[in-house]
Design a protein around this nucleic acid. Structure first.
Lengths: 364, 364
DNA sequence: GTTTAGCACTCGACGACCGAGAGTGCTAAT
DNA sequence: ATTAGCACTCTCGGTCGTCGAGTGCTAAAC
């Protein structure tokens, strides 16, 4: 879109003022903002042209103008000034993320809460493993004659376990045998390849303890399925109510129930590259329910195997720049923390860990 | 409170009608409900008396009457007819709870979601361990020269683990030694007794690998603290908006932000005994924010060590009886499932588990 | 040709007003 | 003790008129 410099300035002024006040902005207000180097009459003319270009719209005659979705798009692409995140916010993000003691899903949760609190919009956070998950290793810990623990190490270096009580007795020797068999047959293969055939051949191999094999196999399948699942959390939905466009309870509820519906989350926009912030404005959204909302999302990748997404949903009237800055700062923080969280780097002498003072600096 | 039989009938009619319609109910409507065996004029007189007793109130002259908090209290204590849960709902609860694959906190979460969906009110679910948590046993699994897994069995039969990467080498032999030391000194004691003194004496005992001892001890402390924490979830807050008394967005938000504030949850009412349903009506609540809401909560105990609570928060105009029936049904289901969830009873012949078809029947 | 002052016009927001309806309390009759 | 009747009260919903912000157009100024 090729606009005269003056039109650009006016469009930017309209967007920024409207974002602040939520009221249609009139020619006079723009003139004031621009230091009255141009008269309101001229601005009226320019605004009329911007309207015929489809960048502004009028709620009704004799009201001010409001940016159209296309207007926001031009603003985001060409006019928006990149915001720095405030040091307060940066501090807060760093602290909140670091204070999480452990647990990937906890951390992702926390990031969502943080994003929604900081932006005052509902946030969604999702994470998924990119590669295939397999079991790298089985161990069975003998507790007593009817009890043992399954410990599995996954190929992405997480550990899962389960305590098993049996009605038939087991011995440490049997467990050793089982471990050998499972480590031989069940490691390094994806969930699809754990077939009933494999299970029954394994049962034949151990001869005894048929039921136990089935239990362990079941646990393994459950585990691998769970790892494959995309973990998504939506938080801060109530924040919507703070914004005048969602004073209408029904409207707010429609959107929120859409966001809360697990099945629909797949249709939220997904940025293409790590670190990139994706703005999806109003009707650019695939889902009808998001037609008059904007979504800002940022992707972060951790190594090869984990990729995640954190985003917020709000009215098209959003502080695009500020929100983007906050989200990408959080995403950076997550990248750093997740990269280090499961692999605690221990140096016996100095005892400082990778989490020490954070590797993530301030956004641009 | 000693009321004439007729007053009781009228009070009950007012409460039940008001709960249905959310409109103040007039003498005529009560007369109709009561089969017009009494005239509306008589009922007017009775209602005037009920008002002077403090059981009914008038929003304004020339409107119908509305139950006062005290009125609801009398209703709940003396007049309410116990409701049976519908078989549909029972089925739904059973299915939803059984379909959860695993994980205590998942199950509690699910129960909250269920409660809020079924009752259309925000629900809160919490669970805590009653006794002290200690570690029953340590195992260390050697992975490679710089990596091992800590596996701990807690005294409540849950297993926790962590993968540790070191910058210094370890050997299986060292891990065996460590396990012996930790099993000797760190088992069976609560978190408070893991003191710096204990840690440093342990460090001296192993001689080598000072840093590793500290890491393991740190993990242990973290674990025990986590186990002590009360796990609370609030779900379905948006349900509030469905109820006419919360059409006012600000009012809804005040309540929701109160419920979402972790620090305040401690002040929600707690039933005294397992299985008991506790009704807390309006001003009976300690917290100012709950002054015009009612809370219905039910407690469930699982064995000696785990106790939980599930409740809903709503306007005083609630279907007390139905909500109570649903909650106690859910609580029963939780008791049964939680009692069995961590100890999978395996019978190799028939393969049916304790979860088979559920041990919890219908609430009287 | 571009910019600007001036002016008539449009349209939504807000408040006043008013009638309808529901429900009450009181009185008098049963 | 109960009930019919009636005057009274108060809310709710709709209509109407005013107010003000903002526009588009025209004509003058630069």
């Amino acid at each position: 879109m090729n606009l005269s410099e003056r039109k650009k300035v006016i469009l930017r002024a309209v967007v920024e003022q409207y974002v602040q006040t939520a009221e249609p902005v009139g020619s006079k207000a723009v003139a004031a903002e621009l230091g009255s180097s141009i008269s309101s009459a001229t601005i009226r003319n320019e605004m009329a042209e911007l309207e015929s270009l489809g960048l502004l719209e009028q709620p009704h005659t004799s009201a001010g103008r409001v940016p159209s979705p296309l207007g926001y798009r031009i603003y985001v692409n060409e006019l928006m000034r990149r915001q720095k995140i405030s040091t307060d916010d940066a501090q807060m993000i760093t602290n909140a993320l670091k204070s999480r003691t452990s647990g990937k899903s906890d951390l992702i949760d926390e990031a969502g809460v943080l994003a929604s609190r900081l932006t005052t919009y509902p946030a969604y956070a999702m994470a998924t493993v990119a590669g295939v998950t397999t079991i790298a290793r089985f161990d069975f810990i003998f507790i007593d004659s009817h009890t043992f623990i399954i410990v599995t190490l996954l190929n992405n270096d997480t550990v899962k376990n389960k305590l098993i009580h049996l009605t038939v007795p087991v011995s440490p020797k049997m467990l050793t045998k089982l471990a050998a068999v499972f480590n031989a047959s069940f490691t390094g293969i994806p969930e699809e390849r754990i077939t009933p055939a494999l299970i029954s051949s394994t049962e034949r191999a151990v001869g005894d303890m048929i039921g136990v094999v089935a239990v362990i196999a079941g646990f393994t399948i459950e585990l691998l399925c769970e790892a494959k699942a995309i973990d998504t959390r939506v938080t801060g939905t109530m924040n919507l109510l703070n914004h005048p466009e969602y004073r209408d309870v029904d409207k707010a509820q429609r959107l929120i129930s859409y966001l809360t519906d697990d099945n629909e989350l797949a249709r939220l926009p997904l940025p293409n590259a790590s670190g990139e912030v994706k703005f999806t404005i109003g009707p650019e959204n695939l889902a009808d329910e998001l037609r008059d909302t904007s979504v800002i999302a940022v992707r972060y990748d951790v190594g090869d195997d984990l990729q995640g997404l954190i985003g917020v949903v709000g009215p098209t009237r959003m502080e695009y720049s500020k929100v983007a800055a906050k989200l990408s700062y959080i995403a950076q923080g997550l990248s750093v923390l997740l990269a280090g969280s499961d692999k605690l780097q221990l140096n016996p002498e100095s005892k400082n860990s990778k989490l020490g003072d954070g590797g993530f600096g301030q956004d641009e």
